[in-house]
Design a protein around this nucleic acid. Structure first.
Length: 430
RNA sequence: GCGGGUGUAGCUCAAUGGCAGAGCGCUACACUGUGGAUGUAGUUGUUGUGGGUUCGAGCCCCAUCACCCGCCCCA
């Protein structure tokens, strides 16, 4: 479509009109609440970093292909952060001796990745990151999964709608070894496992054979990937599921040997949440346990567990399921109308009196026909409208109308505040 | 980087190569001191952009841009 302006928004960015902003703030609030319920502290890192920070640790593609890099005016290369973990590692290493471990930190902010925008993926997105650092037991993994489940529940997603699938890298390594897949081949096999759910079974099997997996190994692999009781052979997972039961979130969590996760740094528990009932096939959130967080930034070994959730996928899912609260643009519950030019200052004064009492009050910015002002109030989701016309002004009165039921009363000006509060309270009760 | 699809009114979408339309919205009025309902009237276009074919192009062809869907990767 021809746009009115010739300047378009940058590809892959989203514009946040008040409705979208309300959704973003809603996700921020729910993510924050889930972490805070478990005693996590909010933190953040710079949005601009040097490319060197990522060169060491992150996946190759993420740095070389998917980062926004540019030179600043001094000629130094700057990267818009594509992920948070390297910044976390640097900040921890810098104060490793002073921080009180275990550390529980959460963050919610913007990230940039230069990739093709599509459903659930944009180039500029917001991501919730949450980590527990300095302990390495499976019960700690359980805490993070419980936080994820708490969040899913708090936004109205039931276990039927959203499930957290869990696996363990060490368990899978042992299984791969048992079917004689060499250590050098395991990365490739992990990728193969990742793709299995996206492919037709036949196509996947021929791809596996192409990649040099023997027929016997393929049979063994299929057996492993189909064994949903495999977790019983892994002490870490047995303990994890015991902890999840104690934390009361078992219904949200399932073992699945097909969950691998591409990132190299995961060493133990890995997990991903999916909505199996909707149209989005992407993970809502994903995370796991990593060792040696600080290895590349020069700190002492530190183990941690954490996960990340982007705002795009969860936003689509909540929208599709009608789980978003009514994000009506209601900037204030009260509108003070301006009857005509001679009563304009009267209206400004009334609005000011009501604000002094603590009400959020919008006053119509200029005199206009009352029907226009009422229509505006209706469209803005305003609950109460006041009118001071010549009659009210002459008697020191104010007419207060309740837009939700259409009733109105005329009261002494001094009683206006109380009358409005009563209407708002009775509306809140329902 | 690769493959597929779509661009028509503010929005959602119609229109055999032959006068560019509907619904919703918006504005006005009914209702000169009152929104949401209803009725009446009115309003809305460089058919993404640039070329080509044709007597004639929204429709066919080429290019280009934007967006969408998938692959890769991943939140």
């Amino acid at each position: 479509m021809a746009s009115k302006t010739s300047i378009q928004a940058v590809k892959g960015t989203r514009e946040f009109y008040p409705e979208e902003m309300a959704l973003r703030n809603y996700l921020y609030a729910k993510a924050g609440a889930a972490g805070q319920a478990f005693g996590y502290q909010e933190w953040d890192a710079p949005f601009l970093e040097t490319i060197d920070l990522y060169a060491a640790k992150s996946g190759e593609e993420l740095v070389k292909e998917q980062s926004f890099v540019f030179n600043d005016r001094g000629g130094d290369p700057i990267t818009l952060r594509p992920e948070l973990t390297p910044s976390l590692a640097r900040m921890i290493a810098a104060r490793q001796g002073q921080l009180a471990f275990p550390l529980r930190w959460w963050s919610f902010g913007p990230f940039w990745r230069y990739e093709r925008p599509q459903k659930g993926r944009s180039r500029e997105f917001f991501q919730w990151n949450i980590d527990l650092l300095g302990v390495s037991c499976p019960e700690a993994d359980g805490e993070l999964i419980a936080i994820a489940a708490t969040f899913l529940k708090s936004v109205g997603l039931t276990p039927e709608m959203a499930t957290i699938f869990v696996n363990n890298r060490r368990l899978m390594d042992a299984q791969f070894e048992a079917i004689r897949i060499s250590p050098e081949k395991r990365l490739e096999v992990s990728g193969l496992v990742d793709r299995r759910s996206k492919m037709a079974p036949d196509a996947w099997e021929s791809l596996a054979l192409e990649k040099g997996i023997s027929g016997g190994q393929l049979a063994g692999l299929k057996q492993v990937l189909g064994n949903y009781d495999l977790w019983r052979e892994c002490e870490e997972l047995v303990r994890l599921f015991k902890a999840l039961a104690a934390l009361g979130v078992s219904e949200y969590v399932k073992f699945d040997p097909n969950i691998m996760r591409g990132l190299l740094y995961y060493t133990g528990t890995v997990f991903e949440a999916f909505d199996l009932s909707g149209s989005v096939r992407r993970a809502i959130l994903g995370g796991g346990r990593y060792d040696n967080l600080l290895g590349d930034v020069g700190g002492d070994p530190l183990s941690g567990v954490g996960f990340a959730m982007g705002d795009v996928v969860i936003g689509i899912i909540l929208q599709e399921k009608g789980l978003l609260p009514a994000f009506v643009p209601s900037p204030a519950p009260v509108l003070v109308t301006v009857f005509d030019e001679s009563l304009w200052m009267n209206a400004l004064g009334l609005a000011s009196e009501l604000r002094a009492g603590g009400l959020r009050v919008l006053s119509y910015p200029e005199p206009a026909k009352l029907s226009k002002q009422f229509k505006f109030a209706d469209r803005m989701g305003i609950q109460v409208v006041t009118v001071v016309g010549p009659d009210e002004a002459a008697n020191g009165h104010v007419t207060v109308k309740n837009l939700s039921n259409g009733t109105q009363e005329t009261v002494e000006r001094a009683e206006t505040f109380k009358t409005i509060v009563k209407i708002l309270e009775s509306a809140a009760e329902r």
